[in-house]
Nucleic acid binder design. Sequence first.
DNA 1: CAGGTTATGTATTGGTCAGTACAAAACTTG
DNA 2: CAAGTTTTGTACTGACCAATACATAACCTG
Lengths: 198, 198
Amino acid sequence: MARPRTFDEERALDAAMRTFWEKGYEATSTQDLCDATGLGRSSIYNTFKSKHDLFERALARYIDSMTTAQLAVMEDVRLSAADRIRTLFAMVIDGETEHRADGRGLGCLTVNTTVELVARDARAAGMLERDTTRRLAALRAVFEEGRRDGSITSSRDPGALARFVNAAIGGMRISSQGGADRATLESIAEITMDALTG
Amino acid sequence: MARPRTFDEERALDAAMRTFWEKGYEATSTQDLCDATGLGRSSIYNTFKSKHDLFERALARYIDSMTTAQLAVMEDVRLSAADRIRTLFAMVIDGETEHRADGRGLGCLTVNTTVELVARDARAAGMLERDTTRRLAALRAVFEEGRRDGSITSSRDPGALARFVNAAIGGMRISSQGGADRATLESIAEITMDALTG
DNA sequence: CAGGTTATGTATTGGTCAGTACAAAACTTG
DNA sequence: CAAGTTTTGTACTGACCAATACATAACCTG
């Protein structure tokens, strides 16, 4: 009934997501998005109605893929609670050390967006807040399980432990962007585990 | 011998620093800097030769004031090593909960700059790297002292503990920007201490 | 109070920003 | 193959960007 698209919307979204991830929202121009996706301006504005809308979709995609993968680990009944947290840290470290061109981690679009936009962009802030709530709830359940299975010996409140681990992940990501190598990140993860199992 | 300035350079620098801190580098326009400092464009460009130069001076000022205050605590011989770390955390938490208009922390210009610029701005990256090195060295010394005075019972390497605490501070700052309140930050700090003293 | 010097205000630079207008192209369906 | 619909490329919009040119103002020294 009409001219069909010559590109895959999901692939374009993915390319846009990576660009925002690498450069941040403000530093990414619409031209950058055209270059990254291979689309013309018309196609971009026809498909995604504005730079901000495209960013929101990219962020939603990022959040969904990240949190889906992390929740799968946190709900993996084959692992003890402590091992779930260890696996979670390993995932974060793998993610941070994976795309390194210049020896630094890319960080995490969620953390980056928190720093760059949360004070000024209520919609982004809302998305991040909902995601944090979801991840904290899953972490809390892991620690409740850990109390039962005996793998988490800390007597701290499970909710507090959840926030602690969430903060630790953020700290590892910042450290990675600051230049920490894999061994350093692994060491940070181990010491973080000390707080849970010691 | 010539017309004198009608403004205080240090005050202007301070205002610029706060603006970069609140909005980030890219999102701060030269007009924003004029508004914040009360200076005209000419005065800004006459005093600081470019936006980027002004940013570097602002960042240097921030780093200097922050690290000076933190090193003073870390070298305070009246306190046990563990108490120095506790005091350090208290300073970070006070800083994060101090300027809250909207219930969120401003974060830390160092962390914010790491996220926003480190991948693209070699000069800023260098400044941050030197500062991190300095702070890690001080933290390491604290943990060596903690082994002697018995207040730090973890058997982990002092350098590793230093990087762990540095990451923990970053994580607390990200958590604060994400909306964590004072009680949450204090709880994170306590659990972090568990890893050092447990 | 005059000469030298620096600070300041105003106007402007060329460039890039996000976003749009519009016509040509490409496809499906009848 | 023609009508209808959507995509696409090109050119363009006004706004704002960092930075500068230049004239004027304000001050110190002699």
